[in-house]
């Protein structure tokens, strides 16, 4: 028996395959593109390439993420809040923790006990503090989003971008760049803005002082961002390279 977890987010679609004993057999990411249904088809093809043609009775699947409806063959659809909580517990151990998931269009903060959700908050109808904000602004800086972190770590000034609105922040970056601000300082300003917004959301949790705070989602391999976020919330934020798969891992666990 194989357990498949598929997390179709707004930007990338993550897949995790687990073996009978819930060890991870393989994981891969495909860009979601314009249609989650199209991403679902590409995932199906990729799964066949990797696992061969599996008879239907030999695997079970749970889908999650905003595109969870696109996986018609999944046994169940579970929200990313529940899946990230289960996945975070798989990666970082059971017990009390707070999970911060920064996704492409949604950021969530979740209090978790042994994989179970105690409380959660999500950003309202706004891209501030989400991957979308980073994507737009790194585009404006003419660099791929994954270069933001290293660039920001070389900043010479703690530049503040005050606009929370993505569109206004973009104009602010344009005008700051026009005043000769360095790319490094602008990158710092962009990451700082996300950390600020996420820490406000984090502050809504009833138990902000939980010992373990973990970061899942796309920014798990942004060490400089993690240190910024740790400073903002006053707790050490830990992550792991596999934490971007937390949703898919949680889904596979529930399959």
């Amino acid at each position: 028996m194989r357990y498949i977890g598929i997390d179709i987010g707004s930007t990338s679609a993550k897949t995790v395959v687990m073996e009978e004993d819930r060890k991870i057999l393989c994981s891969f990411t495909v860009p979601t593109g314009w249609s989650s249904f199209d991403a679902g088809k590409r995932i199906e093809t990729e799964l066949q390439n990797r696992l061969g043609k599996l008879p239907r009775q030999d695997f079970r699947c749970v889908s999650t993420g905003y595109g969870r409806q696109a996986v018609s063959w999944a046994e169940r659809r579970v929200t990313e809040i529940t899946c990230h909580s289960r996945g975070a517990s798989f990666l970082f151990g059971d017990g009390l923790m707070n999970v911060i998931d920064i996704g492409g269009q949604d950021t969530k903060v979740i209090s978790v006990t042994a994989g179970k959700v105690d409380e959660f908050f999500m950003n309202e109808k706004c891209a501030a503090g989400t991957g979308k904000f980073l994507e737009v602004l790194s585009g404006r800086l003419n660099i791929p989003p994954e270069e933001l972190d290293l660039l920001a770590s070389h900043h010479t000034k703690e530049l503040v971008i005050s606009s929370m609105c993505t569109v206004f922040a973009e104009s602010e970056v344009v005008s700051l760049a026009g005043q000769g601000e360095s790319k490094e300082n602008l990158a710092f300003g962009v990451l700082h803005s996300v950390a600020e917004k996420v820490s406000t959301l984090y502050g809504r949790l009833a138990e902000t002082d939980r010992q373990k705070v973990v970061l899942t989602g796309g920014l798990c391999s942004y060490p400089f961002f993690q240190s910024l976020l740790s400073d903002k919330i006053g707790q050490k934020v830990v992550s792991a390279p596999m934490a971007r798969y937390a949703g898919a891992i949680g889904a596979a666990m529930m399959a």
Partner: peptide
């Protein structure tokens, strides 16, 4: 928090489904 548009149906569904899963 919502308004009279249908634009937040996806977000509402995710929040409320996660709430029920809890």
């Amino acid at each position: 928090e919502t308004d009279y548009s249908q634009s937040d149906i996806g977000q509402l569904n995710t929040r409320i489904a996660a709430f029920i899963e809890m």
